[in-house]
């Protein structure tokens, strides 16, 4: 198969670098989005009108901000945030330059996923924790989050896969990664083989992410 050997020698390094860049963007920005998103999601849950510390006005404003951020298309957000991005990471291109907009875009999404996972925890388990004399931070840390963990892990796969989609979009503005390669080589230069291989790599990534998260979620879930 001389074609395969030729292809690998010509594009192997490029595709390997693209995969590494994609994974770096994906995991760094998702991890940061979870730091922010868990905090926002917990606050949304705790301050909801039926929550542990109802603050309806604050909750409505926060919910509105989250919705607003989520409603901006990623490509627009990416461009709109450029001054902010330049201010904090001193570049707007490459893996580093695209991380801030990825985080800003994913965090509200994560917040809603976390809120949803927390809402699935049975009410009486939380009331029992409250009735034991636990403080709200204690309930969140030792009861709510551990109880919601399997659901949160299932949410991680959904988040990772949508952020993976965003990284491909970010490729359009020079972020690097597989999306960037697909656009530059496959779309602009009509090199179909490169496009097909990047798509295959993305498909494999999605499958691996989904399966891994499912296995972990099932392993840590003791409800059966």
């Amino acid at each position: 198969m001389p074609n395969v050997t030729e292809f690998v020698s010509e594009y192997g390094g490029l595709l390997a670098q693209g995969t590494v860049d994609t994974l770096a963007m994906l995991f760094v920005s998702t991890a940061l989005a979870y730091v922010l998103g868990i905090a926002i999601g917990v606050v949304l849950y705790v301050t909801s009108p039926t929550g542990l510390r109802p603050m309806p006005a604050f909750n409505a404003v926060l919910g509105w901000i989250v919705n607003m951020t989520r409603s901006i298309p990623f490509i627009i957000l990416l461009v709109a945030l450029m001054p902010f991005t330049r201010a904090i990471v001193h570049t707007t291109i490459g893996v580093v330059g695209v991380t801030p907009p990825l985080v800003v875009s994913a965090a509200p999404f994560v917040a809603r996923m976390i809120e949803q996972s927390l809402a699935e925890v049975p009410r009486d388990a939380i009331e029992a924790a409250e009735a034991c004399g636990a403080s709200i931070p204690r309930i969140v840390r030792s009861a709510l989050l551990p109880e919601a963990l399997p659901s949160i892990v299932r949410g991680v796969s959904i988040t990772l896969i949508s952020v993976l989609g965003y990284t491909a979009i970010a490729g359009a503005v020079g972020a690097g990664g597989l999306g960037d390669i697909a656009i530059r080589y496959g779309y602009y230069r009509y090199e179909d083989e490169v496009m097909v291989v990047t798509v295959i790599l993305l498909v494999v990534l999605v499958q691996v992410i989904q399966s891994t998260c499912d296995v972990i979620a099932n392993r840590i879930d003791h409800r059966k």
Binding site: A134, A143, P146
Partner: peptide, 22 residues
């Protein structure tokens, strides 16, 4: 003070209220 009081008054629920992951 409320939390200290609640520790003097334990509660048992119809749905048990156990933490499923513990």
């Amino acid at each position: 003070e409320l939390r200290a009081y609640r520790r003097r008054v334990a509660m048992i629920f119809q749905g048990f209220g156990l933490l499923a992951q513990k």
